[in-house]
Structures are given as structure tokens and as C-alpha cells.
Nucleic acid binder design. Sequence first.
DNA 1: CTGGGATTGATGGCT
DNA 2: TCAATCCCAG
Length: 740
Amino acid sequence: MSQLNPAQKEAVLCIQWPLLINAGAGSWKTHTLTERVAYMIQDQHIRPEKIFCVTFTNKAAKEMRERIARKLGLEVPTSNPFRAHSLPIIGTFHAVSAFFLRMFIDRIGYSKDFIIYDEDDKLRVIKQIMKELSLDEKEFNPRAVLGTISKAKWDGLFPQDYEQTVDSFFWSVVNDVYKKYTAVMRWSNALDFDDLLLLMREILKNDEVLEYFHGRFEYFLVDEYQDTNILQYEMIRSLASKSRNLCVVGDDWQGIYSWRWADIKNILSFKKDYPEATVINLEENYRSTQNIINAANTIIKNNSNQMEKTLFTNNPIGEKIVLMEGVDEKHEADIIANKIKTAEDYGNWAILYRTNGQSRLIEEWLIKKNIPYRVYGGLKFYERKEIKDILAYIRVVFNYADMVSLRRIINVPSRKIGEKTIEGLMNLLEQNSYSLIDIASNPDVLNWFTPQARESLTRFFQLYTTLRSIASTRTIRELMEGIIGGTNYVEYLKAEYGEEEVQWKLDNVEEFANMASRYDGLIYPENLAMFLEDIALITDQDRDNENSSESVSLMTIHLAKWLEFKKVVIAWAEEWVFPHSRSLMESSAIEEERRLMYVAITRAKEELYITRANERYSFGNYSANPKSRFLKEIPDEYTISDTGSRGSAGSIFGSMGNGIHWLHDVMSQFKQETTPRSGIHIPKIGKKHNASDFNMGDRIRHPQYGAGTIVAMNGAIADIAFSGMGIKKMNIEIAPIEKQ
DNA sequence: CTGGGATTGATGGCT
DNA sequence: TCAATCCCAG
């Protein structure tokens, strides 16, 4: 609190609601928001569970949760943070929606044990449907179809609504796919990310549900309000409609999510929606030097569509912005690495780029120079093939209707089940309304297939039956062990990949298994339900909180949005890359790219380097991209050129043969120290307790659910009541609980 | 019908 | 560069 300046203090202490905090870059808006929440709890004695706070990324949510927990002297929740009642609900729109959909989605005819499909799953469904509808993928790009459907959802349109808007052949095709897609998702008991918000809106239309929310929450806070879209906007509006205690924080200059249909009007019209609202401007930047702020200001002034605002700083003028050019992309990476190597203060540095793919080359040079680094974002852990394979097995076990996962793994590793056989199986399932379980317990129906196919399928269903029985009686870890053992997965990997890559993949699998042990003791199927949800929505954040103080941070600008660094490198400042080629046709898209550059520049506290290469080899050929137009928009007085030396020229074109090493290095930084290094050894879960040590009425503590009381016992199976979240069935002997 | 090898095509940001 | 698709042999 003491570190806050007057404007920030006002924003923290203001007891008027609604409240709009109009906060420029570097005005410490998230910090201010965090302080505000802590103040509400500590000084205004508002009960934490009355507070509902949404952020834009999991990372931001986690950071905020931790700061508040520390401030209040509470334990930082390790997972499933929405269940920690001593803290407010703090999460992304998606995560929060998923949590509440599990409570209420049955009101609109869905099942509560839905699973969540990611982009990859979604695309598989679309492709499958297009095949069934005999649509040519060349004519209709599945991604475009998917994008159009997604847009329809964001506009709040279900297929029947969407049909009304159709006015071209393409749209009518999309509509056909959309209808079928909805049916398949229903049938598979799956939701996609868009559904989370769309259906959240649907359940809020139910008076009884809305009443629950109005009773449960009284205070609502939204970070990055300029990046909300219509569904998110409506969700917040209806939640806050009773108490009208809404506080939003945002900056239209930093709106960089219009491609996700964020609508800047939401923040611009806040005063119209809530005429009684107080507005507080945070216009002083406490982060950057004057040179950096001046450069950022001159760039953003080139945009037309925005609020008038001043952003200033009382910080020193500081160093000029250093513009560096490489001969080619390797030279550029070399220059960056040299600069950082010379400075040695690795933890102060961040390298920001426009697209994830750009990290790779830079990583190679950092490795070459022995500079520790961490890549944020990129391919998600659970999107890696080996993880998704095992996950798909678990999903099919958990949800026998999950056809996408079934298709994914029915022939992985190969069981000689080909496309024809799969089609036959699907027909069997659909036309007879069989489920996988029906077939598994009644293999005679497979007689329809050719002997070879029948043999293969029979083996698969035997495995399936075994896995289901493991799942229902053992831990998730043991289920994974069963999957890996039952499919010879290790052998499969060894046949498909090189030695090092196999090792790396096995390490991933092992880490995956370790993660699962958190769910030990929860009873089937709730253990799997919780596990799968965490994987889909909030697991990644648990993995990347390790110390970054010693290493260079690499990330996209989008990810960096809520962060700051002493020294920032913006790489690849070239037309086609940044601004991105897909934005060049549209002035509004260019403006968004410009806001992105604004965000990138304002991440830097003291030193800013912007680099590019005169020519580069990418996507298989050489190209020479002109200098980014945004560079030309910075007046010379704020910049200085540094062509960089070809210091280690000999190595520039040297060996690239690092192979998988760099991946391994990156991964090892994610790992927990306790993770053993080789092979998959998933230890059997030993008994942690004897059931006889526990009695009815005992108070216990669970790492995930907090304090609870044993209210019923039947052998080792106990019903444990946790405050605020109901009764969980657990196996006392293996649950990670402790007596209190 | 399946599996392996060759060819082609695509390549944004995040939940 | 990598993944998906196509093509052909067994």
C-alpha cells in the first residue's frame, strides 16, 4: 500500500461502485486491482467468497491469486483455486465458466460431466463431419469453417439462430457443418472453449441460477476490460445487475484481441451502462524511461480510433532505443544473444516476438552462448502428442461417448485397425445405439467384421474393459500405467522416434503421471472429472511458476501484455512479420498491430532493443522484408543504431545440429526437482494411512480442498465434508490427507 | 485393407 | 520446417 501513488491509492480506496479505472500502460493497473481486492478483504471486511474477479489469462489470475494470498497471510492454493473459500474467485472467463457450468449445465439439458475439447479435437470433429458431408477440404478450408462457426458462437448464435443469417453458399455450407457439429458435440458430451461462454450465458438466463449468483457474489472485478467481447460483457452485466458493484480496469490503447472479437466499445460505453460510475484515470507511467514512453506515444498517435489520453512519466530520460540490424536471421539472433551475453544479467531480459514460431532460432543461439532462458506459451504441455494420446485413452475410459478421442487412439499404437474398420465400428455404434461398453461386454456383435478386424477390435475392447476396471478402483497414475503397459506405448515411441526424443517424451509422460497423483484418493469418476478439467483449463499455469530470475524470458507480445522487464528485445521488426502479413489489407487490423507494438515497447523499463534482419530464410526460401513501418514512426531523436558486430562470425553458419537438446533443456526447466530422470517408473501408490486411524468426526486437511470433517466411513471409503464445497468421497488409505 | 514412403501444402495471437 | 495427405506395394 505504501508503494502506491495518489492516483493508485484513490483507485484502491474508492468505495464507490461501479468504478472504471482507465489505466495507461505501466500505471500498475493489475497491481492496483490486486491491492484493491486485498483492501476490500482486509480493511472493509468484505468476505472473500463474495468477490468475483476475472482476468484474461491463467497466468494473470494465478499471479493475482498468489499476491492476494500472500498479502492476507494465506496459503497459496496449489490447484483448483476456485474451491479455496478463503480467497475470492479469481480466474479467466473460461475457467470460471467451466466451474459454474459443472454446477448448473443440467438446467439446459447438458450433462455435468462434460469434457472440454481443445482446438485440435475441434478440428478433428470438423474434418470428420466434412468428410461425412462429402465436402472437399480444398474447396472449404476446415479451419475457415471452424473459424466461422466459432464466430457464430461468439455472436451468441446457435445453429437455429445462425440459419437466419445465412446468405451465401459458403455460409450455408458452414451452417450444415455447424448443425452437425453441435449434434456431434452433444453426442460426445463435449464442450469447446466457445461453448463455455455461450452456455454460461444460457444458464444465466435461468432465473433460479441467476438468483444463486446474485446471492453468492456481490462484488465483481474485471481486468483488461477493453479485451472483453460480447459474451463476456453480457455475462458480467447480468452477474452485476443486482448489486451493481462492478469495477473494471482497462486501456483501449492496449486492445489486442479483436481477432477474438473483443469489442472496444465495451469499455468506451461503460459510463453509459453505469451512469453512476466513478472514473479514475491512471495516466502516470511508473515503469519506463521518458525515451521509451515518448516513442510509444508517437507510435500510438498514428491510430485514429481511440480515446484521448495522456501518458507521461517522471522517470529519467534514460537510454535511447537501440535499433539493430542483422545481415540475415542468424546474424540477428547472434546479435541478440551477444548483447545479452555481454550484459550477463539474464533475468532482466525478455525477448518478445510476434509469433510463437519465432522463438526457435533465437533459442538456438541462446543455447550456443550458454545463456539460460525460458520459453513461455507455445505448444501447451497437454497438446504434446504423447500426452494427448494418454489423455485420449483416459477420456475414452471416462466418457465412452468421446468419439474424437476414440478415433485418436483406437489404432495408436497400431493394432491394424484401419479407416474401414473404424467406419464399420462407428456404424455399429450409431445404428444400434450401442456404446463402447455394450460392445466390450458383448463381443459377439463384432462378428460382422472380417476375421482380422474382429481380432484387432476384440483385443482393443479387452484392453478397454481392463482400463475401465482399473479406473474405477485405482488411482489415475495406475490407470496411466495400465495404458502405457497395455499398449506397449514405450515400444511404440521407440519405433517412431529417435532415442533422445523418446527420452524426452517419456519424461513428459512421467511428469504427467506425477501431476495426476494430486487426485489420489478422490473416488472414481470424480477423480477423472477433476483431472480432465484441470488439464483442459488450468494445468499449464501450475507448471511455469519456477524461478525465472536467472534466465531470459522468451514469449509472444500477447503473453507479455501484463508483464514488464528491465530490458526488452523486440525481434523481427519487419513488414509481413510485424505487422503480420494477414493484417496488411485492413486498416483496423494494422491499428491493432500498432497497438501490439505499443504494448511491446511499453513492456520495457530501462532498455529497449528492436532488431530485424535484412534478409531471412523462412518457410523454405529467402526473402527480404522491409523495415517495419512502426520503426519509421519513431522519431530519430529517441533512437540510436547499432549494427552489431559479427563477433563470432565463424559460428554463425556453424553447426545447427543441436537436435533435440534444446527441447530437453527447455523442458528440464519446467520440471520439478524431484522428478526422476529416466524411464517411466511410476511407483505404485502405497498406503498412506490405515483406515483404522481415522474416525467419524475427525478433522482432516486435504492439499486441494482444505479443511474437512469425516462425516461417514465405510471401510477405507469415507465421506468428507469440506467447508463450502460439499461432501467428497475419498479412500482414506491413499488420499493425501492429514489429521488436524 | 493396411502400412510405409513420397509429396504437397500451410504457416497468428489465447482460452 | 513439419504435418497431413496421397500413392502404391504387399
